[in-house]
Design a protein around this nucleic acid. Sequence first.
DNA 1: CTGAAAGCGCTTACAG
DNA 2: CTGAAAGCGCTTACAG
Lengths: 341, 341
Amino acid sequence: MVGQPLVRLQDVAEHAGVSLATASRMLSDPEYGGRAGLRERVLASAAELGYRPNPHARALAMATSTNIGLVIHDVRDPYFATLSGGVITVAERHDLLVSMVCSYRDASRELEYTKRLADQRVRAIILAGSSVRDSAHAAAMHAELVSYQHSGGSVVSVTRGRTVGHVVDIDNSGGMRTLVHAMVELGHTSFGVIAGPLRLLAVRDRLQGIRQGLKDHGLTLGRDDIVYVDMSRDGGLAGAHLLMKRPKPPRCLLAISDVVAFGALSWLRAQGMTVPDDVSVTGFGGIPAAIDAVPSLTTVELPLEQVGENAMELALKPASPRHIVEVKGTLVRRDSVAPPR
Amino acid sequence: MVGQPLVRLQDVAEHAGVSLATASRMLSDPEYGGRAGLRERVLASAAELGYRPNPHARALAMATSTNIGLVIHDVRDPYFATLSGGVITVAERHDLLVSMVCSYRDASRELEYTKRLADQRVRAIILAGSSVRDSAHAAAMHAELVSYQHSGGSVVSVTRGRTVGHVVDIDNSGGMRTLVHAMVELGHTSFGVIAGPLRLLAVRDRLQGIRQGLKDHGLTLGRDDIVYVDMSRDGGLAGAHLLMKRPKPPRCLLAISDVVAFGALSWLRAQGMTVPDDVSVTGFGGIPAAIDAVPSLTTVELPLEQVGENAMELALKPASPRHIVEVKGTLVRRDSVAPPR
DNA sequence: CTGAAAGCGCTTACAG
DNA sequence: CTGAAAGCGCTTACAG
């Protein structure tokens, strides 16, 4: 690359009449003493020359950068977009840049990006998507994270089950269980579940919550009462179709996430079915749009933005002791549910 | 930072029995010749030792990195989330990481982040939010971008009016004009506009499109027919309130963006007003959720994801010649509009 | 407190 | 084609 010569620390030092070392100290170590007026002089020179430190040189010398790595499933998903907003807010407060990558729920992408971020010496890696249940992959991820943490990096997972780094543990199963209780108490006994891929831990946990919630009331889920789809609006569309076209369609549709529930609502609307009169629908997550859905969506609301903030705050803490922040969702009952007719 | 010793290029070179220089060439220059089997040997050593190049050392030596900087207004806004998805998709294809920052429509943030990204020697800076109309700020941004480009960086703006770098030019005014024509042809004559802050060029352009569209039919907008709000769902809520509480409320609400329109729909619903029977509502942008709104939202649909892909593709092109990609929206008429009663 | 020097891990003219 | 050496722009023991 060609370019006009940039001003280096060396230039600042000369301009201020001090050594490179002193200039470096005055500029980047606020604690450092120094004879009266020295610091001011160096700062003035830096300002006058328009000095802007080269972060790569610094990262090379210090073996750490001023960036944060954020791994999510998909930015286009409001769940992750909202969470990312929280991460970015706190990162900004600490003058940290965030490099965001999307795994699209693909294990190998997740691993590759994690390595890439580790190589970049980001200060912290925040894994904000549910971890994947694949023992080979899990082992590789674990090894990578351990070595990354060992080299001074900070690891934060927004998923339980990781044995390294800090954790923001979202109570997926408990939230779903509470939701199911409420539906049963509303009078529902016939459920259909639109689930996501079983390799995702969050999916498993939410399903477990559903099963437990039903079991608490002596109910069970039949094999056919659950369908597995992509965790997207289109997945929800397909899932609703599969469940509702059965001979005896369920009276309450439990979607694995809000976005999936939106797809279901859309399918039902297209079929001319009325929610909640014909069928009740629930989501999970509490993305902002849930409140504006028509009918407004009953869901387990997670403080998504705050989860992102928590994650970023944990990223700033030393690796030891490990912190586990538990986040519980709150059931928000809205218009998408009613007692079965 | 403490950490186990990582393997360096030097180690690979020794293991393969070649010099540092040769190892470097074999590993990072596929074009480079070399005696038969040499490359294989070096690659084998690198693989065996688990060599992972230090990107900062490389960036320092080459004065360029393998990252892309993306500046948007807000990740939580589906408009930008969708667009970002496109950027990330193409970036991944080229093995590039994207560092994403949110300006929250704040000029000084935009400038600071741009500088920061330039300092990081990102390969390209993609400015995906509408530029701000403030001559001092514009001058500073321009100077920064020129110097960045001069030093080898690639600049792409998803907004017109920038005189440096490539541009993805979204036809904001033309799109709005078409939309207004359609509304007038539907029989509307009484409009209310929920606009965003005038310092945003995109807002000005869309407003201009509205005015032009009306003028084409001999109509004009009164001073009170337009309100200025935050470009968010809550802004839309407030805007609808302001306009609809007037003595003679408009029969058609033109929102400056889809998200703002969602807010308006929400307010109207809360008031017990029916869309489109009582009032028609339109948006702009074509975010995915527009189709699932109830009533589904009439809007000018932009290929947002593709805009992001285009931007990233332009980022890969040499600075000269400049490319201007023009993107037109398409009017999508849905259920949120009807002839006035 | 301050400075000269080594070192971070690469790339790339420059000689051979 | 290959290697020794300089250089990228910082930080930080190590002496003074």
